[in-house]
């Protein structure tokens, strides 16, 4: 069953069409990748799903309910969490506080609880702390939990972002270029982590990635977009041999091919 169904989605910004009549399915429990050349509209799709952009037309149905017209925070409450292309941590806060932000949508203490500190509020505070610590351990960043996020190495910032996303106990995890800036070893452990968290928490993973090696290794389904239009869809093997995909990636001769797609 499709956990998320994007139906005929179009997104235009003042004359430029970022996404055109895109239809795709993300199956429950799958690892699905969205790929395409630079500027193909991949991040726009994520921004529409998470409510940061308002789609011009079309529908996005998640878990049986439409996400259109919902605000980003409401979509997070529905169980979709994203990571950002350029790791957006709360830089002047500690790693632990960053991960606690993930627990915001799964806890409910109000200002009255904060001021009165009654037993329910204290219990919840203890529970979210334990949950945050669990995910800090899970992503291997526990020892640095009291450091400020901006003092971390890039790899550790990524880990923190992962822990933060997991702490919200999502149904669907959207990863925007999770391998960007990672070395080969880190990429291998990333692949392992993606597979592991799917089996540990039964999270569905939908990712945008430029690193074809990673995409082909980790995904069960690959969707290819170019100029906002879906040009291919299938298993990694099917997509890799699709002539339209090869053309989109190679394009005209002078276009750079930083992705090493056909290597």
């Amino acid at each position: 069953m499709a956990l998320m169904h994007v139906d005929d989605l179009t997104m235009r910004f003042s004359g430029i069409t970022a996404i055109e009549r895109l239809t795709l399915d993300v199956q429950e429990g799958s690892i699905t990748s969205l790929i395409g050349p630079n500027g193909a509209g991949k991040t726009s799709v994520f921004n529409c799903i998470t409510g940061f952009y308002k789609a011009t037309s079309g529908d996005i149905v998640f878990d049986g309910q439409s996400l259109i017209n919902l605000k980003p925070y409401q979509i997070t409450y529905r169980g979709i969490i994203r990571t950002f292309q350029n790791v957006r941590l709360f830089k002047n806060m500690t790693v632990l506080e960053n991960v606690l932000s993930g627990t915001h949508s799964v806890s409910k203490q109000s200002i009255f609880g904060a001021l009165a500190r009654h037993s329910a509020a204290r219990l919840e505070e203890k529970a979210v702390l334990e949950s945050a610590e669990y995910f800090l351990e899970y992503t291997g960043i526990y020892n640095k939990r009291h450091e400020l996020a901006r003092n971390l190495s890039y790899g550790d910032q990524r880990r923190t972002e992962w822990a933060r996303a997991l702490a919200s106990q999502p149904k669907l995890l959207l990863l925007d270029e999770p391998a960007a800036g990672l070395n080969r070893g880190e990429k291998d452990s990333l692949i392992e982590l993606i597979r592991k968290l799917r089996s540990d928490f039964s999270i569905t993973v939908f990712l945008i990635e430029h690193d074809m090696d990673l995409v082909m290794k980790v995904s069960e389904k690959v969707i290819v977009v170019n100029f906002g239009v879906k040009i291919a869809e299938g298993t990694p093997n099917q997509v890799q041999t699709n002539p339209q995909v090869i053309e989109a990636y190679l394009g005209s001769e002078e276009e750079e091919d930083e992705d090493g797609f056909i290597s």
């Binding site: 940061f52 997070t76 969490i81 830089k91 002047n92 806060m93 932000s101």
Partner: peptide, 15 residues
């Protein structure tokens, strides 16, 4: 504090 640090990221975390 999340809002102070990064309003968009705060929204993405459900605030």
């Amino acid at each position: 504090a999340f809002i102070r640090e990064d309003e968009d990221a705060a929204q993405a975390m459900g605030v």
